[in-house]
Design a protein around this nucleic acid. Sequence first.
DNA 1: GCTAACTGTAACCTATTTGTTACGCACCTG
DNA 2: CAGGTGCGTAACAAATAGGTTACAGTTAGC
Lengths: 226, 226
Amino acid sequence: MKVLVVEDDKEIVDAISLAFQIRWPEAKVVSTRLGQKGVELVETESPDLVILDLGLPDINGFEVLQQIRRFSSVPTIILTVRSDEVDVVKGLEWGADDYITKPFRQLELLARVKSLIRRHSPTEEEWLTYGLMRLDPVTGQLHIGDKEIALTVTENHILSHMMRNAGHVVTHSNLAEAVWGDDYPGATDSLKVHIRRLREKVEKEPGKPVIILTKTGVGYFLSKPD
Amino acid sequence: MKVLVVEDDKEIVDAISLAFQIRWPEAKVVSTRLGQKGVELVETESPDLVILDLGLPDINGFEVLQQIRRFSSVPTIILTVRSDEVDVVKGLEWGADDYITKPFRQLELLARVKSLIRRHSPTEEEWLTYGLMRLDPVTGQLHIGDKEIALTVTENHILSHMMRNAGHVVTHSNLAEAVWGDDYPGATDSLKVHIRRLREKVEKEPGKPVIILTKTGVGYFLSKPD
DNA sequence: GCTAACTGTAACCTATTTGTTACGCACCTG
DNA sequence: CAGGTGCGTAACAAATAGGTTACAGTTAGC
């Protein structure tokens, strides 16, 4: 468990360190007072959690958050003296997971940290459900009613991504990214083949799909479950 | 999107409903003043989000949360008048995902809700709204009241451009540029065909449009909503 | 190292979308 | 009222996107 604190006020850093020392001694706290350095440390230290002050001496806290989010989804709590609601909204919209205003109480900080870590902890197993379908995205086992169907990894990627966006259209590029990662080869031709194969497994009549539907020119979406 | 509010103070319920109505109209708000009823509603209504007051007339809010957590991991925000830190810590440790203290600001509530929902469904989308119409310009899905209509990419270009210029007349050339890019072929004849097709999807009587109106010699515009 | 399963490519077919054209109607102008 | 302009409408043709299938290369498991 490693925590990165990006904060220029030494007192605050000490308070945070102390809080962890007392209540969560096995956690390691790393800190820096510069935003730029903070971004680098996220990369080199790969912390499990970032606590980020919005008012930094070098660059704006939002800027730091934005840069971090370009390559990492590390849980991040923003810290602000201002109780200014605009900052909070902005921070959350830019990808922060939580915020806390200074002055804060130790207990509250730790409770939020704990809650955040729990949410991100990989132990939580999740099932995706949609209508009658239940999918374990870890194993690719799909249940429809009492039938059990084994999906291949690619099919699993596609279907789980669609189920996570239940009811909404997901674009071709979105799906392609979910399957082949950030930059995928130009030809997304195979996508339609995979869709066909999925339909073969999922639909009664693959030729007349009622679950996996097409949005021409855009992508695919799951029909609304009754 | 369905929200369950468990709260006995009618004013608070109204405030929450109002906040959603204004800023997130497609969300449905269900509420009850009793904790026991709240637990049942989580089961029967399967909301996407629960907002739970800790001070309820029948049973303690923690009790409610605990019972919910026995069978559901629905994202839950707890609501408390007390800024008492112990409550907050306890709530978060018992499985709440976030908390907010009364009195709260609409923006903050919605920001937290949005952040929480986003964690549960990763696609964030921006909607264009105008009167009863809501359009997702990324996918071209259009909602009018409870109807969902699929627009083609061209129709999507046209309508989203008009919605972005809500209430103002957009010229033919403006629209043409929005659809076909900087320099479009001379004949914008097809524009009127697309307008016709849009009206077919959007208007009750496409022949007597009341939403997409013509400004002869200039272009088209959206009628003022109500 | 062999087999079965999975994946991507290509060729061909079908469906949908888009642009074109022709024509009708309303309105304006002289 | 004749002629012109601008928009609406419908039918058709072209272009594009998606569906389907077969096949071959790759991978995984035994």
